[in-house]
């Protein structure tokens, strides 16, 4: 699969989710922050986007701890996203 196709698939999985909050947050992150990530961080974000919303949300709002250091970096960046 080409990079563009892979990115489109990721966009779909970020913006067609169960909860509006996650559509907004992950969509915004993909546009603004994703292009600046290191390859390891990018892989970590793809793994986060594969999680279900009710598992991901507590990690994003900090009510659940994240053990993986790279994932923690990505979550910290995700928390800085402000949806316009």
């Amino acid at each position: 699969m080409e990079d563009r196709q892979r990115l489109n698939r990721l966009r779909w999985r970020c913006t067609r989710r169960a909860m509006l909050e996650m559509d907004l947050l992950l969509g915004e992150f993909l546009d603004r922050v994703f292009p600046t990530l290191t390859p390891a961080q990018a892989d970590s974000f793809v793994a986060l986007a594969d999680m279900e919303d009710l598992e991901l949300w507590p990690l994003v709002n900090g009510s659940r701890e994240c053990a993986d250091p790279v994932q923690a970096e990505v979550l910290a960046l995700l928390r800085t996203v402000r949806v316009k």
Partner: peptide, 12 residues
């Protein structure tokens, strides 16, 4: 389905 079943809006 447009998405994986457990990602449907019923979750909300």
């Amino acid at each position: 389905s447009k998405v994986f079943p457990t990602r449907s809006h019923t979750v909300a």
